[in-house]
């Protein structure tokens, strides 16, 4: 309980500090909305040419865009600091975290929310509300969507932690490997049925972004997988946390400070 209080106060003060820069908040928000619109622009171009994508209509694909945007926005708001880990390892800044009386990973994750996350959250919510109302979805789907989205946040962050844990062994101030995870998240905004099998299975089982958007989407729009699509996301989220924790522990064991 005490740890939770510490995390909350760290998160709150960090967010307050960032909110001081009001122009940054405004620009960050507008920018992330613009980036989402750019991605929607490509979807528009693609749908303009091919009205059905792997059996999904444009409006159904909007659901995938919406849930991915909210998952990304929540991850950026709550757990974004993992992107700095490779730099901290190189500079020896991680030492500071290791002497705090709290587990270092959650502390690291929550201590630097980014302001553009609100733009992703807003765009995602607008898309989801539009999509769910357009298809007259029943109340229980409206209740499930935040759960799927949060599972997406957990899966995405866990995958970033897994990849970042390699930075303990392969030291360098690079975040390109994290960009790879981010690219996969962007790819999962399209129905996985349009991709070759190897990529489809990669996004369903190994880096399971499909578990929080594609499979629930299948359930909502009565396509494949039935109830399995609705309940699998929390299972994958729990599994992702476990794997991320194992890799983080392995990585920390390999950590050698810079000695500075």
């Amino acid at each position: 309980m005490n740890e939770l209080k510490i995390y909350w106060s760290v998160f709150k003060s960090s967010l307050q500090a960032k909110m001081e820069y009001k122009l940054d908040f405004l620009i960050g928000m507008i920018t992330s909305i613009m980036l989402q619109l750019a991605a929607l622009g490509l979807l528009w171009v693609v749908i303009h040419q091919s009205p059905l994508l792997g059996g999904w209509t444009g409006k159904e694909v909007l659901f995938l865009f919406g849930i991915s945007a909210t998952a990304l926005g929540t991850a950026e708001l709550l757990f974004n600091h993992i992107w700095m880990l490779p730099y901290y390892i190189v500079m020896g800044d991680l030492d500071r975290l290791l002497i705090y009386p709290t587990p270092p990973l959650p502390f690291l994750l929550i201590s630097s929310p980014v302001l553009h996350s609100f733009g992703n959250l807003l765009t995602g919510m607008v898309l989801l509300i539009y999509c769910l109302s357009h298809f007259h979805e029943p109340w229980y789907i409206w209740m499930m969507v935040p759960l799927w989205s949060f599972c997406g946040t957990i899966i995405y962050t866990s995958m970033l932690v897994c990849i970042c844990s390699l930075s303990f062994k392969f030291i360098g101030p690079y975040t390109y490997n994290l960009n790879f995870v981010h690219s996969l998240l962007q790819a999962s905004r399209y129905p996985l049925s349009i991709y070759p099998n190897w990529l489809k299975y990669l996004l369903l089982f190994l880096i399971p972004f499909g578990a929080f958007n594609f499979l629930p989407g299948n359930f909502i729009f009565h396509k494949l997988f039935g109830l399995f699509g609705a309940w699998i996301a929390p299972v994958f989220a729990a599994l992702s946390i476990w794997i991320a924790k194992q890799l983080w522990t392995w990585g920390l064991k390999n950590y050698q400070s810079t000695g500075t």
Binding site: I27, G28, T31, M34, H116
Partner: peptide
């Protein structure tokens, strides 16, 4: 931060 400007 330069993020917003670059990303826009």
């Amino acid at each position: 931060s330069s993020y917003g400007i670059s990303a826009s």
